[in-house]
Design a binder for these strands. Structure first.
Lengths: 221, 221
DNA sequence: GCGGGCCTATCCCCTAGGAGGTAGCGGGCC
DNA sequence: GGCCCGCTACCTCCTAGGGGATAGGCCCGC
């Protein structure tokens, strides 16, 4: 399941307002027989529409575009149900941008000044489900982690309060909010508040993700 | 989490229309300091109300009662959000009854002719989260399994179709129905149908339970 | 050929879940 | 004393999820 092997070439949609750069990438893709262009556009809103229509394996997304910025576009893609990979492709090596993008659910962050061969290699890795980050950003990322950003970049059990951990445990046992409320003798509304908070802290999008994560981390016992 | 140790005694609610039998069990409980009577009633509907009010750790439930039968009562308790243990307590060693009760979510099935000491031992096991079945029923259960009942008693991956397994895999990855639909290029409605069917086949109550089960079984990779 | 399982889709209906906000209360910290 | 955090509770609004039912197209086995 969660098939990430590509018997057929991986399709890529480019959303970037620089025509020349799009041209560069498409030329690059033409040389590879396991990567194929699904479509391209310079308009963020059009990009969301195309993602729905073409359902590419990967979206290469510029951060700085007129109208809607990249982060916003990323969120809209996810809200719209797009389940493929989303890789940011930008000139900005600003720490804030990198952190924001990753926290918004980007599967990669590549800089536009990268070597073409390296670019292809990274795209291929991304279509296989791996997180890809431009090499020059790793030091910056390490630094960001050391200084402990306010918004945690990865799920971290330690950011949860005791009560939230307790709720998470019950949630991972498959209990509904109502059942958890009954068990802990609080109202369902309060359970919802705890769930809401722990999802935010863990940067997860649903109770299912939280349950799966908890089980994989062995927090459910 | 999912705390099943009882620093305080485990409370038990008895729902049984035989006053004498209730008396017998309560007397039995009085001899044990780790088990305590939460309440008792001969009325199924009253039992559901009491379960909500008293929120006992365990409900001891008769199968054959006038008005609402035990299975129906069991379902109402679960619908009402009761998350504690529910153990069937009956004279019936009918295979159909046993299978139905367990499939409806009973955590145990004890026969009324059992030895008092054994009864206490089994109740204690049940409060600790273990499934308890009267010894004399084990052969019958084995037989039922051998003849492969139409409704599978336990989650079984083999009862799923290929497509359902695929859906389960995506579900266990934390994807929403909408995302799964996009990824597999079918409508969200169809995904819902598959999810509905696999939940029924696996005898699970929500996608969260399905996701947790799949992860624990290693089906998500 | 006919039945049955599988996949797809659509309809209705209702509950569960999650985002946003406000607020009271207790405890610890400065 | 004031302030923040954790826990509780309530509110509104909207979407996601799930039950039940029906049905068409497809393929396979009898």
């Amino acid at each position: 399941m969660t098939d990430t092997t590509h018997e057929t070439p991986a399709s890529i949609l480019i959303i970037d307002d620089h025509p020349l750069l799009r041209r560069g990438v498409t030329q690059l893709l033409e040389l590879e027989d396991d990567l194929v262009l699904a479509g391209e556009t310079g308009e963020p809103a059009e990009g969301v529409r195309l993602a729905r229509e073409l359902d590419p394996d990967l979206v290469l997304l510029d951060l700085n575009m007129p109208g809607m910025n990249g982060i916003e576009t990323l969120k809209r893609l996810r809200d719209d149900g797009f389940a493929g990979r989303i890789v940011i492709f930008t000139v900005s090596d600003n720490e804030e941008d990198v952190v924001d993008a990753l926290q918004a659910g980007a599967d990669g962050y590549l800089l536009k000044d990268m070597d073409p061969d390296e670019m292809v290699r990274q795209l291929r890795q991304a279509t296989l489900g791996r997180m890809v980050i431009s090499e020059s950003l790793t030091a910056l990322l390490a630094e960001a982690l050391r200084h402990q950003r306010s918004k945690p970049a990865a799920p971290d059990i330690h950011s949860l309060t005791q009560r939230e951990r307790e709720i998470l445990g019950e949630l991972a046992a498959g209990l509904s909010n109502k059942m958890i409320a009954r068990k802990l003798d609080i109202t369902e509304g309060t359970v919802k508040v705890h769930v809401k908070h722990l999802l935010k802290k863990l940067n997860l999008r649903s109770r299912v993700e939280a349950a799966v994560w908890a089980v994989q981390e062995g927090l459910d016992r």
